[in-house]
Design a protein around this nucleic acid. Sequence first.
DNA 1: TTTCTTATTAGTAATCGTTCCGATTATCGG
DNA 2: CCGATAATCGGAACGATTACTAATAAGAAA
Lengths: 135, 135
Amino acid sequence: MKQEHSGKNYRYSRQRERILEVLRSTESHPTASWLYDKLKPEFPRLSLGTVYRNLAILIDLGFARKIDAGSTFDRFEAKTEPHYHLICRKCGKIEDFEKHFFPEIDEEIRRSTDFDIEGHRIDFFGTCSDCNRKS
Amino acid sequence: MKQEHSGKNYRYSRQRERILEVLRSTESHPTASWLYDKLKPEFPRLSLGTVYRNLAILIDLGFARKIDAGSTFDRFEAKTEPHYHLICRKCGKIEDFEKHFFPEIDEEIRRSTDFDIEGHRIDFFGTCSDCNRKS
DNA sequence: TTTCTTATTAGTAATCGTTCCGATTATCGG
DNA sequence: CCGATAATCGGAACGATTACTAATAAGAAA
């Protein structure tokens, strides 16, 4: 893991490395405390503050992203390729969707606003197949 | 203001009526405490909890929406027609964008997932003209 | 209008996710 | 190995939101 970006140069830390590995190993778009629980057995003295601080650093390094899914808590992901999210209104599950990406809509918007558009995010809302099956 | 929806029947309240009016009168996508400050002179005994509770009711009634813009606090709007948001990465300002809407992308997604898609939200990120001018 | 029921409010305390702080530990260049 | 300082731990602090209780007010019925 290269740890330099945006002027800053971060020292290596075993906790940070593992936080990124665990984040990369899941598709569940976890919370900070989920990561904390996962890593607590490995680092018995791990602190939640360490998880938060390192997630912020990983975001700064471009290795992770924060997701706003309407919950009261933040969720994170390590996927950096462009993709969208399917958010289940019933259970809150977030799934990645990468089959289509629409770069042309940025152009469309650029033409009719003076905002300097860098990119966009799309979230699709609905009900996941698990929840559909149950009702 | 019709106050019935989702089974519940709400009583009239002057505070709720004014909260909606003020929310409709601004394009600033305000926070709960901004609304509180605006209405405090009019209702000297207004409580912040009242603002939050009524915003939740207004959302339930379909008169308002909550916006997740990556901040630590919630922002609200009373515009109910479909539209997107332009979010300034520098100053946090949110502007509405209604010139284009892309209903066809829901169809596109429906075809390749088993999620039951109800709709989508798009947020465009960039720099607003005010911030561009300053730098 | 008066009464009665109950939704709504004000005021405050509690909650909960996140950030901050001081002391200790670890990284890493010299 | 030493020294400088970044990162950690543990816990306190913070800030937005929610929950609780007694008082108030909407609105239906008499």
